[in-house]
Amino acid sequence: MSQLLGLLNRAKYFLLFIVLELISFFLIRKNNVQWDVTLFNSSNAVVSRILKATYGAKEYLYLKKENTSLALENKALRKQLTQAQLLAEERPNGFYLADSIYANRFDFTLAKVANSTTARTKNYITLDKGTADGIKPGMGVIGPKGVVGQVKSCSEHFSVVYSILHSEFRVSSEVVNKELKASGESALGLCVWPGESRSVVDMNTVDKFKPVSVNDSVVTSSQNLIFPSGILVGNVKSVETPTNGAFHTIEVNLATDFGGLTYVYIIDNKLSSEQEELEAEALANE
């Protein structure tokens, strides 16, 4: 206590100065309208900046929660969009119409990327969903912008995914453009990563007589067991048509940025087992 009193005694002239300054400002403010308005405006400006900074900090703190909320909303919209596209698939003269069971066969689970690689010849992505969430090997994985890969293996709470940046992964795809739609044709092929740039894949076995141009869209085809048709793979970067060969040589710019991937959607084709069993039975009976 004596130390505190000693400190106050040593600082008594400074404290007296502060008190007199406050009294002076109060008297000036009370008796001078211009000073009163200036002080009011200045204090408002300071308060405004503080509120703006506080709002910015709150917005940043809640950004993770907001991103998760948007990802969940996108999952629901993705399911609705897939159902609508499958029910309204364009076919010449309307000879084909998908039933509701076929259109509703895909389900989606939101997952977050826990780890990933892009610099190897066989790249993988680890997700924070596993068998406890109904995930199984073989399921397809897409991102907000397009195809990502396929589930390779699962533990109870995690899954490892073959990235499309994997030398052994193939995606059944097709080129989409106005000419092909007008003629009712399909330019089918397989997208495979050549092991170079993480943003470019090759598209093989596309008939050279099918019209393909730079910037045409490349999407998953209907001949696909793990992905719904129409999921974007990327856009044609370059196309060469050899005189002797039977197929175009096509490079595709990937839609998915694997360097900035955060949330993905794991796809469950609820009819895949039935299709695989039937095909295996047919092969066994040959």
Rank of each mutant, 00 (worst) to 15 (best):
V212G: 03
Q223A: 12
K208W: 09
E274C: 01
D216H: 10
G94F: 12
A98V: 08
H248D: 03
K270P: 00
R170Y: 06
A98P: 04
D207A: 12
R29K: 08
G230R: 06
S42G: 12
A284T: 02
T205F: 15
Y96A: 08
T118C: 07
V219N: 08
A53Y: 02
F209C: 02
E90G: 04
V37H: 11
F25H: 12
R198P: 12
K136L: 12
E66M: 06
K152E: 09
N244R: 13
V19P: 02
W193G: 00
N224W: 06
T82A: 11
Y162H: 12
D207R: 14
K64R: 09
V214T: 13
K122F: 14
E179S: 10
K30C: 06
F40S: 14
H248L: 02
A103Q: 06
E240H: 12
N123C: 01
N204G: 02
P92N: 07
E73R: 10
L81K: 04
T118H: 07
E59V: 08
L22V: 13
S238N: 12
V19R: 07
D107K: 15
F25C: 07
M1S: 14
L20F: 13
Y162E: 01
V192P: 00
V264F: 08
G230P: 03
Q83N: 11
Q3G: 03
V233T: 05
A246L: 15
N41Y: 11
A255T: 05
E73L: 11
G146F: 05
G149V: 05
N204F: 08
I231M: 01
A53K: 10
N9K: 15
M139T: 03
Y124D: 00
D207C: 13
F40A: 04
F258E: 01
K136Q: 14
D99Q: 10
A132G: 07
L127Q: 03
K112I: 09
Q83S: 00
P211K: 11
E274R: 08
L4M: 15
M139I: 08
D36Q: 13
T131C: 00
L81R: 07
L77R: 14
L20P: 00
T205D: 07
L283M: 06
E240S: 10
S217C: 08
V236M: 03
T241L: 06
R198G: 04
I231T: 01
L51F: 01
F95M: 10
K129F: 06
P92C: 02
T131L: 13
K208R: 14
A111K: 07
E196H: 09
P242V: 10
A114F: 09
P242C: 08
S273W: 01
P194I: 03
N244D: 12
L225S: 06
L22G: 15
V161K: 00
N44E: 02
T82W: 05
G234S: 04
V148T: 04
V219I: 11
N9Y: 15
L190S: 03
K178T: 11
Q83A: 02
